[in-house]
Design a protein around this nucleic acid. Structure first.
Length: 425
RNA sequence: GUGGGUAUAGUUCAAUGGUAGAGCACCGGAUUGUGGUUCCGGGCGUUGUGGGUUCGAGUCCCAUUACCCACCCCA
């Protein structure tokens, strides 16, 4: 039997309904903050991710879903969104054509070739926002605040960790300090970290094997080594977060796994029940646009894992939709039901017809199990009198309408729906 | 890439090495047009796949694949 590809999931039924509602709510929230939707292709030249995400990162080195196309082009399924968006931003001259700041969001599937586990799949989904052309710390604050707004909407318990990882000027100085510090302790580090001293010493900080945070109290931290400009930026960011009422803790051990970050770096963790508890993460990337060949443009943004977010939303956060259905109680009623279905189709109510004639008992049993709210039935009597019988499955109330009184029916249904559907806005 | 666990009906699970079963779901019925309850009827599934041990394997051994959980890393 053919099954879904490893780490890729089907979505249907109630879960698909809740997922769709979740995406709608997310879009509404970010759109009210003037982020506009941005769609890029699922695949890109692999070179984009190598340059954008960083040649030495795990994402590029071992988690890329890549292949050669029929012309031998080396293509990769996007492992994250920022690189693609930056590519499009440059390609379409958006920095020249659009007034800054340019605020956008994307929502869609991403791919990483990893071993699946709870909260991590080979095809996963992210919400991302990016802001181009603004270097203010307050915009970083709004960016983080926007992530919080989404989580607040879904009543999620979370914690914001923020850090500054400096800029081109001060980070190399700090990096040297770190290398110096850990070189004396080299024999106490794990194999990976011994290599990291050479390749990416910052990553030593969040290694869970060596756990330097716990072992050594005197590790030099970036926040003590920021240059004047970065320090000022970081202080103003904290001030703005206070004003936004974002309860963040400063965590100098936040190091992002992607190479492009400068200054602001943050992560939001939540209690997922599993170990994959980082629900969102991001920061500032002032050098990425120019690194990929665009004009020097400051930028900031985050990505949020939708599978992880989804798992945090209570199952009853969304009420199921109100559905109405029509049934024929005898062969002679089928044509009348077809007419009725045709009339109902002109109105914005969820209605479907089941044309197979059934005994009334079966109809109600079926409707009950399908969680249908209103049942419309046409039988011998209804055909004779040109009527249709409506039954409210919740209250048991019944009402007889003329088959052409669809306007009246729809009005009653919509009235019921207003009480029935708990809107979250 | 590295560990650990699991694999039997659509689904959830049983079956001291000796003929593969149950609940739920699904379909039909219990005399006439009213649901959630009850009762009755309806199941041959290559026991994930391939080998091996044995008179005999769902059960023991080996391999393989898939899923789940964790590590690494990330959202």
């Amino acid at each position: 039997m053919i099954k879904a590809v490893k780490g890729m999931n089907d979505l249907f039924g109630k879960k698909a309904y809740r997922w769709g509602r979740m995406e709608e709510d997310i879009k509404t929230i970010v759109q009210t903050a003037n982020f506009t939707e941005f769609r890029t292709p699922i695949v890109e030249e692999i070179a984009l991710f190598k340059r954008g995400v960083g040649e030495t990162t795990d994402v590029v080195q071992k988690e890329m879903y890549d292949f050669l196309d029929k012309k031998g082009r080396h293509i990769a399924m996007r492992p994250e969104g920022t690189a693609s968006v930056v590519r499009a931003f440059i390609e379409h001259g958006i920095s020249i054509n659009e007034p800054a700041p340019f605020k956008l969001f994307y929502i869609g599937p991403f791919f990483r070739y990893e071993r699946p586990q709870k909260g991590r799949y080979r095809q996963f989904h992210q919400l991302g926002i990016e802001i181009f052309g603004d270097d203010t710390p307050q915009m970083d604050g709004e960016m983080i605040f926007t992530a919080c707004r989404v989580l607040e909407h879904f009543k999620i318990d979370y914690e914001v960790h923020i850090n500054s990882i400096g800029c081109k000027e001060c980070r190399p100085v700090y990096r040297e300090k770190l290398v110096e510090y850990f070189s004396s302790k080299k024999d106490k580090l794990c194999d990976d970290c011994q290599k990291r001293i050479e390749t990416n010493p910052l990553r030593l900080l969040d290694c869970k094997t060596c756990n330097p945070k716990e072992k050594y109290q005197d590790i030099p931290v970036m926040t003590d080594h920021l240059c004047e400009i970065c320090d000022d930026h970081f202080k103003k960011l904290q001030k703005s977060l206070e004003i936004f009422h974002v309860k963040g803790v400063i965590d100098p051990f936040i190091v992002r796994g992607l190479d492009y970050y400068t200054r602001t770096a943050f992560e939001i963790v939540a209690n997922t029940g599993g170990s994959q508890n980082a629900v969102a993460g991001g920061g500032r990337y002032d050098n990425l646009v120019s690194d990929i060949g665009g004009v020097d443009t400051p930028a900031t943004g985050f990505a949020m894992g939708l599978e992880r977010l989804f798992d945090l939303i209570p199952e009853d956060f969304y009420q199921p939709p109100m559905i109405s259905a029509g049934y024929a109680l005898c062969e002679e009623a089928v044509d009348d039901l077809v007419h009725f279905a045709k009339h109902m189709s002109h109105h914005p109510v969820t209605f479907f017809a089941d044309y197979k004639p059934r005994k009334i008992k079966k109809v109600l049993q079926k409707a009950d199990r399908s969680e249908i709210s209103f049942v419309f039935m046409v039988g011998e009597n209804e055909v004779k009198n040109k009527t249709v019988l409506m039954k409210n499955m919740k209250t048991g109330e019944q009402k007889l309408y003329g088959q052409h009184e669809v306007i009246l029916i729809v009005r009653d249904l919509m009235k019921a729906e207003a009480n029935f559907l708990k809107k979250n806005f």
